[in-house]
Amino acid sequence: MPLGIFAFFATLAVISALGVILQRSPVHSLLALIVTLLCVAALMIGLDALAVGLLQAIVYVGAIVVLFLFVIWLLNLERDPEESGRLGIKLLAAVGAAALVGELTAFLTRTHMSQQTVNSDYGSMAQLAGLIFGNYLIAFEVTSLLLLVAVVGVVAVARRWPSPRLANRPPTLSAKPQT
């Protein structure tokens, strides 16, 4: 990926990431998150990981973030009730994050990594599938089990269990709701 395009997407990603954490409205944060995710996907494609980049867009943007949207709707959250105060933790967070970036940057300035030349099928679906259904087959199968467990778990956690009082109520004959 040429440096200019990288710079464009990287800047956009950073700005939108800041948008995620700084905006008051969760929906705006969500929108910013989508932009970040798409930028990251584009950067991935720029790193020859075409299939994974598109999967990132499909899975994250098409599914996971929609879940967030649903929950925001369900809870009917317009704005954060209180985001003021707590200056101490904000300050510490900023200092800590800056230190982290500093440390990692110090690392990166001392390492020199060059891109290897790769085959034309690098990052293709075929290559990915070969690995997933080859070396990583067991992990893949375990993941499918994880998904199943998660589905069951979410239903169990988020379901509105009928209260025992309601369940024990005798069935009504009339359609008139009982008070």
Partner: peptide
């Protein structure tokens, strides 16, 4: 695109947000 179908699916996935955010 060698992964053209994935691309279409990704774009369609993005299409949700127009309807979703418009109404909201």
């Amino acid at each position: 695109l060698t992964a053209g179908i994935l691309y279409i699916l990704a774009a369609l996935g993005l299409g949700v947000y127009g309807a979703a955010l418009g109404g909201w």
